[in-house]
């Protein structure tokens, strides 16, 4: 974990209100592990007293890439950053995805820009597996060629049917599990909206498969001090709070109290 002044080296709008932000951030880029995030001070947003957390999509040499959707003040502020501008980053933060187990078959499941947190999992995996990407429409299916270039198979589902199978990504996953799965035990790596996390978690837990889920809780300090981003996890017969920024954002699905998640 370090404070680093990163430099904006390019802004690349991709599609449907999504952009890639490439930053020169040698200290963080060399340390980041799959599923970790950086906490960014958005420039010119002086009335906001908190940073904004972003998953690291790619880390290549001294360069970090963030994939983000223009949804609010923070992401609009990020979009307005200029080439050569300096951004204050804290990172890499959090407890990310473990390396896929060699004797399992890795399955990535992503909703919308959730795929950003999974790219480094695919890149560093000892085994090539399959990725299921879901979104509202074709516009929300991002960077498929990046994953294919790593030798992974990508299957797509959109709610409006504009790309891939029509419907939810979990239905696509169910079909695959039923018809195409080999004898290898699946191991899931999941990032997306909480409803999707919950749906994949329940399928994995029911069959005693391992699922690693990355939660997207509102965050404050990002380093474990403010206790904003907590969620309930099992602790023996009882429960305890876990910090998404510190113990997470990636949790073993079997540890989360899913009934407490909206």
């Amino acid at each position: 974990m370090q404070l680093e002044q990163a430099i904006v080296i390019s802004q690349q709008p991709i599609q449907g209100g999504y952009s890639l932000l490439h930053l020169r951030s040698p200290g963080i880029a060399s340390q980041v592990r799959p599923g970790q995030f950086v906490h960014i001070k958005i420039p010119r947003l002086e009335e906001c007293v908190l940073r904004r957390p972003f998953s690291v999509f790619r880390a290549d040499g001294d360069t970090l890439t963030i994939l983000y959707k223009h949804v609010g003040r923070g992401t609009r502020g990020l979009k307005d950053t200029k080439l050569g501008e300096t951004l204050s980053l804290i990172g890499p933060l959090g407890h990310g995805f473990p390396s896929p187990q060699k004797d399992c078959f890795p399955i990535l499941v992503a909703g919308g820009y959730g795929m950003a947190a999974l790219y480094l999992v695919a890149k560093q995996s000892p085994v090539k597996g399959i990725a299921f990407f879901g979104g509202r429409s074709a516009q929300d299916i991002l960077c498929v060629p990046d994953f294919e270039a790593l030798g992974w198979t990508v299957r797509v589902a959109t709610e409006d049917g504009s790309l891939g199978q029509q419907g939810l990504v979990t239905a696509l996953l169910d079909d695959w599990l039923e018809r195409e799965r080999t004898n290898e035990t699946p191991e899931f790596f999941v990032c997306g909206p909480s409803g999707m996390l919950k749906a994949v978690a329940s399928r994995a837990i029911a069959r005693a498969w391992t699922a690693w889920t990355s939660v997207d809780n509102n965050m404050g300090c990002g380093v474990g001090a403010c206790l904003t981003c907590v969620l309930k996890v099992k602790s023996g017969e009882d429960w305890t709070w876990a910090r998404a920024c510190k113990e997470g954002p990636v949790f073993n699905a079997a540890d989360i109290l899913w009934e407490e998640i909206e």
Partner: peptide
Amino acid sequence: TKGNQTPRTAEAASGLLNAIGLP
């Protein structure tokens, strides 16, 4: 102590509202 339920903080203009509840 476990403190309050979530959400526990919310940004306001140049400020932060919190009700962490002293966990």
